[in-house]
């Protein structure tokens, strides 16, 4: 790392974030579980495998159309467990609260966490609270950690992926990022863009029931689908080609992205997943997804290819092909 100090760019899930993880955290904590750098670690105890994960949530504004920081904190951790193929069971939460924070808002956030946990069929079994001086944190920061049990015959792994496998998206992408960005900048869209934040574990369970079909799962949060696809291309050492016209994007999100000069491929999701699926079983997986309320708009958006140079490409609606790059730093509204 060339920087002497951490900047916001290190937190946005792009190149800098990966540099931080690979150069600071991995060497410090080196162990076999950490090596895969997946959303959850699969740890063996006797002949059982448990999945563990943790995530911290810092969102401005705390409340936005479609959700709040509490709902995101529960769903984020549930989804990280689910993406490893595990069944989420127990969560803990830690809260760092700024002095002066309204109790009513705290209660609202907790109710929202409880509702999300019930929806995901998990329980919040332990917690911790710290209160800091005014100005030392922005309202409230929430951490959640989670444990799940892994019961599949085989771990989901980049090693399973072959050229020709297809990429499925579970619905309209980019919604959460644009919901938060439009709320942050007080842009009134009609209808307002509501976050997609939702627990995906029941959808994942249906997908995994199609035996051996799903090879990798990821919830494309920070950095959007572009970041997830680029990470996958690196992990599988193959290319990925997306057909832009097949990527579900709501017209309102499209309009908001055009207005703010951001690309929906880089906009965060909190209730969508991407899957790499065996081509022969893709239709069957797609059918079960479309029958689930959180997967009604699922679509095959691309496939794994052997194109060189390795990377992520998008086939545009006008017939050209472009590189879909990883993001550097936080996505910011542009003027030019």
């Amino acid at each position: 790392m060339n920087d002497k100090h951490i900047t916001l760019a290190y937190g946005s899930g792009g190149d800098k974030y990966h540099q931080l993880v690979k150069e600071v955290f991995v060497p410090a904590f080196a162990n076999p579980y950490l090596q895969s750098l997946s959303d959850s670690a699969l740890c063996s105890i006797d002949n059982k495998k448990i999945a563990m994960t943790t995530d911290s949530f810092v969102i401005k504004p705390l409340f936005f159309p479609g959700g709040d920081i509490g709902r995101v904190a529960v769903c984020g951790t549930v989804n990280d467990l689910a993406m490893s193929g595990a069944r989420p069971l127990f969560l803990t939460t830690g809260m760092i609260i700024e002095a002066g924070f309204p109790v009513d808002e705290l209660k609202t956030i907790c109710r929202s966490m409880a509702a999300a946990a019930a929806e995901a069929n998990v329980v919040i079994v332990a917690g911790d609270t710290k209160v800091v001086d005014k100005g030392e944190c922005d309202g409230i920061f929430i951490n959640t950690a989670g444990v799940g049990i892994f019961e599949l015959p085989q771990e989901l792994s980049p090693a399973l992926v072959e050229p020709g496998d297809v990429i499925i998206a579970s619905g309209e992408i980019g919604t959460h990022g644009m919901a938060v960005m439009t709320a942050r900048h007080n842009l009134d869209f009609s209808p307002p863009i509501a976050s997609d934040v939702a627990p995906l574990n029941s959808l994942v369970a249906k997908m995994l029931a199609v035996s051996g079909a799903v090879k990798l799962l990821r919830d494309p949060t920070r950095g959007g689908i572009a970041s997830t696809l680029n990470e996958w291309a690196d992990d599988i050492d193959m290319s990925i080609e997306i057909v832009e016209n097949n990527v579900p994007i709501s017209p309102t999100v499209h309009a908001a992205c055009d207005l703010l000069g951001v690309d929906p491929f880089y906009s965060a999701n909190e209730g969508k997943l991407l899957a790499i699926v065996d081509a022969g079983m893709a239709q069957e997986v797609l059918n079960v997804m479309q029958e689930h309320p959180l997967g009604e708009k699922s679509a095959i958006i691309g496939q794994v290819t052997e194109d060189k140079p390795r990377g992520v490409y998008a086939r545009t609606s006008i017939g050209s092909k472009r590189i879909v790059m990883t993001i550097n730093g936080e996505q910011l509204p542009r003027i030019c």
């Binding site: 545009t316 006008i318 030019c336």
Partner: peptide, 16 residues
């Protein structure tokens, strides 16, 4: 124009 540059990259126009 910067927006042209963005659009040219966005649509892969150089490759066309």
């Amino acid at each position: 124009c910067g927006t042209h540059t963005m659009s040219i990259a966005r649509w892969g126009i150089k490759t066309m």
